[in-house]
């Protein structure tokens, strides 16, 4: 197939779809009429096979296999999916929710848990990894702890006099300040200073 003719076929398909979008009423009516004709013919044929009229009609409908489903499929074959899918999908979605609320609830629950877990993890990652430390030149910042030589325990808080000593005598650090200080002197601090 040449490029020209394939382009022409695409254009023709597109214009047919556009047509059916603009004149949906007519298209629907024609579709209805086409199906009705088919069902009538099928009914007649069955009646010739000596079935009573309503039985023949029922069988014809049965053989057709779901008129609504078929109309849906035919519309799909001739519609512009991009333009009408959102509203139709929404309608179908709502209908499904109404017909099976438990299933819908399970899905909503799953989504809620998923979104919740994500938000929780992200807020941790955000503060720990992504946000810059709220001090200038954070790479020069260190934390100083004391080690108790007698008991061997490290990461001990320093007493205020120690902090003052460190601050006055340090050559490694440009400045030292207390953080998380307890202003009320504890018993241990009292003993140290006494």
């Amino acid at each position: 197939m040449s490029i020209l003719s394939s382009t022409r076929s695409i254009l023709k398909g597109l214009s047919a779809r556009l047509w059916s979008l603009l004149f949906r009423e007519t298209v629907e009516q024609e579709l209805d009429e086409e199906i009705r004709f088919h069902l009538d013919m099928a009914t007649e044929k069955l009646m010739r096979g000596s079935l009573p009229p309503d039985e023949a009609r029922r069988k014809a409908l049965l053989e057709f296999g779901g008129v609504e489903r078929f109309k849906e499929r035919t519309r799909e074959a001739q519609s512009l999916p991009v333009l009408e899918d959102p509203t139709r999908n929404l309608r179908v979605g709502l209908r499904r929710v109404a017909s099976n609320p438990l299933h819908a609830l399970a899905i909503v629950g799953t989504l809620a848990l998923g979104i919740g877990a994500n938000t929780a993890i992200f807020s941790v990652v955000d503060t720990v990894l992504l946000r810059p430390f709220p001090f200038p030149e954070p790479d020069r910042l260190v934390m100083v702890w004391e080690t108790n030589r007698a008991s061997g325990t490290s990461h001990e808080p320093a007493s205020w006099p120690d902090v003052v000593d460190f601050r006055e005598r340090t050559r490694t650090l440009s400045a030292i300040g207390p953080c998380g200080a307890r202003l009320q002197p504890s018993r241990r601090e009292k003993r140290l200073s006494g």
Binding site: I35, G65, G66, R69, F70, A77
Partner: peptide
């Protein structure tokens, strides 16, 4: 011929020209 596929097919062929 399954009627449910016949008409969609006809409309599809129509759309393809």
């Amino acid at each position: 011929v399954n009627q449910g596929s016949l008409y969609p097919a006809l409309h599809r062929l129509d759309g393809r020209g």
